[in-house]
Structures are given as C-alpha cells and as structure tokens.
C-alpha cells in the first residue's frame, strides 16, 4: 500500500500524461465494477430496474 502511494505520487510529478490516463481508467473501471455489482445485488433482492412510465 505504502509503495503504491509512493508510486502514484511520483507518477504525478514525473509523467502527467500517464497520470491522467491512470486517473480516467481507474475511475471508469471502479465505476463500472461497482455499478454492475449493485445491479446484481438489486436483481438478487428482486428490486426491478426496468423501464418506467414517462410522466409528461
């Protein structure tokens, strides 16, 4: 963990492009994984996530 933090801090100082790519990929990846996991939990619990009627 300590090494990972040091590596991220160093990368932020030395290579901004690599750090920017790492940021976007990490955040998108975590978003997709957590989003899909909760969808699965909702499915198991039987909470429907289908289309809803549009109140216009």
């Amino acid at each position: 963990m300590e090494n990972l933090l040091t590596w991220i801090t160093e990368l932020n100082k030395t290579d901004h492009t690599a750090f920017a790519i790492l940021t976007v990929v990490t955040m998108s990846g975590i978003g997709v994984v957590i989003g899909s996991s909760i969808e699965l939990i909702f499915k198991i619990l039987g909470i429907k996530t289908n289309k809803i009627e549009i109140h216009h």
Binding site: L5, N12, H16, F19, L22, M27, I30
Partner: peptide, 19 residues
C-alpha cells in the same frame, strides 16, 4: 478528470475513496 490530472491537480487516492 483528464484535463485536471494533466495539470497535476487530482488527488487520486481521495477520488477513489470518494467513488
């Protein structure tokens, strides 16, 4: 996110914990 990270203005660990 890409633009701010290019300017070294993103605290990645905090962003991950918040996410």
């Amino acid at each position: 996110a890409f633009s701010y990270a290019m300017k070294a203005r993103v605290e990645l660990v905090a962003a991950v914990v918040m996410l």
